[in-house]
Amino acid sequence: MDSYKNKRSGKVNKSIKEAKIKVQNIKKYFADLHVLDGISFDVRENEVLSIVGPTGCGKTTLAKIIADIIKPTVGEVFINNSPIDNYNQVFSFVFQQDSCLPWMNVLNNVMLGLTVAYKDKMDKKEMEEKAREVINLVNLEGYENYYPIQLSGGMKQRVVIARAFCLDTEILIMDEPFGQIDVQTRYHMEKELLKIWEKYRRTVIFITNHEEQAITLSDRVLKLTGAPAKIKNEISIDIPRPRDILSQEFMEYRKILSSE
């Protein structure tokens, strides 16, 4: 373990500097189940990075390791050039499953992050203003006093996304946020997401199993293999936004991403 640590600190220090997040040789086992097999990559500041891969390959596990929800078996995550344990800011994390709290109305659900993480920084009125601003952005105005039980799946997902955007965190991690949403709403949400991202620029890690979605949204796409996951492929998407999914270059990227 010691020798491993020495090796790591000796080797990497230089390249970390430009990276916001540095993921290093992450391996994860759940008992006998080998999920992640030595994954390393960087995420640059204000970059949108998508991670694609077949279902069950460990994308969610990887996202949770980056957000410090679970610990890797081997390897380490660095943020701003220091180990993740020293990073004391909160993460905006959009979960794959519905994470609306059913006992809170839309407004309080969106404000949850603020009331928990920014309790001392903002007063109640500021929080509410901020929450209403983001609620408008995701087209939920008028639903502030509704409870999740009264909302459709797509609307609940927008509540969760609004909650994540309310916090001005440096890092936003979204784990298949549109997984439960129909195609039509998804296209709309992708557009909204880009709009929001233009407005509150930040470093985004976007987990998805739709390659098309990944190319539409991100600056860079990492493709993982099936479990145990390794990085199979990495491509930078060099098309100006908004991107036309029917354009020639878009097709080119799709071909590159799906071929290898």
């Binding site: 410090d68 929800i69 004391n88 499953q97 519905d98 994470s99 928990v116 993480a117």
Partner: peptide, 12 residues
């Protein structure tokens, strides 16, 4: 679990 993890990301 999701709700607990959510609170964890918010350093609750």
């Amino acid at each position: 679990q999701v709700r607990l993890e959510l609170m964890k990301t918010l350093h609750a």
